[in-house]
Design a protein around this nucleic acid. Sequence first.
DNA 1: ATTCTTGCAAAGCCTTTGCAACTGC
DNA 2: GCAGTTGCAAAGGCTTTGCAAGAAT
Lengths: 162, 162
Amino acid sequence: MTLPAVPVSQPPVDKFQEFLATRARPQRYTGQQRDLVNHIFEKHHHFDAEGLVDDLKKAGLRISRATVYRTLSKLVEAGMLRRHDIDARAYYEHDYGYPQHDHLICEGCGRMIEFQDARVDEVLEQISRQHGFVIASRSFLARGTCLECNRSRSSKRKLDLI
Amino acid sequence: MTLPAVPVSQPPVDKFQEFLATRARPQRYTGQQRDLVNHIFEKHHHFDAEGLVDDLKKAGLRISRATVYRTLSKLVEAGMLRRHDIDARAYYEHDYGYPQHDHLICEGCGRMIEFQDARVDEVLEQISRQHGFVIASRSFLARGTCLECNRSRSSKRKLDLI
DNA sequence: ATTCTTGCAAAGCCTTTGCAACTGC
DNA sequence: GCAGTTGCAAAGGCTTTGCAAGAAT
């Protein structure tokens, strides 16, 4: 967890249950969903569906791949997870209880560096107002090479030239 | 084309040929690649690989799906196309001869609104410097609902309540 | 009871890849 | 002629879906 958590009034499971109950067409809150939400919100990190499936298996939770995909979608709809599409694959992170932020992604090691800057919000606020656009979510990713990978890459490059 | 084009010294085909020729391990410039680059750079727009394949077919160009995918990757490497991952799918747009910018994506109609704001560049410049991160590219997308879709959605919502 | 959810496996979609024929240099 | 490219079709990886059995309200 890189950034300070945001205090929330309800635990994630309750928040999700409320979301399901108050939909136009109420949906059911099941044991699998409860376990999944608890598992996901144990710690802030970036994960994808396949990794989560493996993780659940290791944790001894029996939740099918299909249910994982279906619940992830609902959590995004509920505004509890943010989804980012990276290399044509979906990655998720907490939106509930975690501050809005953006990312630097290292193409060398895959690390995601989180950062926060109020100017990004200001720009979006202003631009969306100008266009009469209502923003639901955002994904601001900059790809490149992190400090460590730059170091190893430059020494590697020297070797390549020999 | 929403934003003003950026003047470039070489036509896209020449730029690409130069890129291929000056690689560590030189690559060949083929007729298919030439036709593809010419086709892509005829007008600025957002497109995906499958759409491009269809487009080429309509235009009477015989370029296989595999070659399209392979050439798109090279054009991204060459810095001539920018790639954005949206809904786990790759979309492309001109990077060569077109200014750096960001997008609002309407979830209703799929429209992509381009915008430019110097503050976004400033933030990235500052943040990357702080982290010793070297940025190669960026993808800043905000999802939501555009003005028109907001209108039709609100009138639709009224009907739903009857 | 009714209606929604689950799990399985199959299907879907976009993308990559192996290989033989072909082509640029 | 050598090394890289093309096209085809098959394989791959991630995600969605149809359906019968099971669970929530």
